[in-house]
Amino acid sequence: MDAIILQILNGLDKGSAYALIALGLTLIFGTLGVVNFAHGALFMIGAFVAVSVQRLLGFSFEQIDPDKTDFLGNPLKVKMTYVESWFGPEVGGAIVDWSVPVAVIVAIPVMLLVGFVMERGLIKHFYKRPHADQILVTFGLAIVLQELIKYFFGANPIQTPAPSAFKGSFDFGVLIGFDPNAIIYPYWRLVYFAFAAVVLGGVFAFLRFTTFGMVVRAGMADRETVGLLGINIDKRFTLMFGLAAAVAGIAGVMYTPILSPNYHMGMDFLVLSFVVVVVGGMGSLPGAVAAGFLLGILQSFASMNEIKSILPGIDQVIMYLVAILILLTRPRGLLGRAGVMEE
């Protein structure tokens, strides 16, 4: 029983990331009709915003320590961050320690801008082109972006730790009557799940309860009619692209303490997120979220030793098997609606 609860918990944080990326993908597809293969790259760029903020806050000057020597035998240059120098070691240290949450605040405008530039600069020219062209151009863009990140940040994963207050893990098992250490779960993963729930709830509330959201939803349902009412739907859809980019970006920022950022993380998540979108149903926002969590949890279960001993390698193919099964039984996905990608 404890193993089952553990895998459900494991699936929640992975599922949260899938759901956040898939939500953005679905938003872009639903509003602009574009299959955006560069969306995973936005998740990666968000993660590297966290790395950049960490480096900016860690920007330091050198002081000579006459008592120590470096590897060449010269007097050791000790680094002192400007933040600690300005605010004192305690406050400055705390700011550096909280670089990931700080990066979320920085990432929102940065990602909105990145999304805006991406949409206006490239993707808008492909709205009336076939899906194959859109996939090719956005896939190419994803490769360019990941190579740029590798050029500036290198190929190795970069540690981006969570704030000290969230290090360590929570003994969830004791809370529900299991032995100590039976079900432990890192604090930061709980934070990530809560964060994902807030973001997903916020996006749904925005679309549901604001006039802007209502117009966007109306545009998703019937773009032409909304346009005939004199509403500039294109402008709103561009803003939605920015919003989707921001969601993917902050999802990437918050994921960095779980998975050290590397230049190919976007591509790793993208493929699985597309499977999530297909399983959820193209164009369905609730479907994307539900499928994200469902597949995240299923993937965790498939990694259990007991399952792998019966079906070796199942953890690598489970998501695709589920996708095949869903497409065979429900070709529109779990919550897909008629008319989407159907000629």
């Binding site: 404890d2 193993a3 895998q7 494991n10 992975k14 993380m265 790793d268 965790s300 990694s303």
Partner: peptide, 12 residues
């Protein structure tokens, strides 16, 4: 990437 599914069974 994410090894959590492989790590969680270790303690038990």
């Amino acid at each position: 990437g994410d090894f959590s599914s492989y790590i969680t069974p270790v303690l038990n």
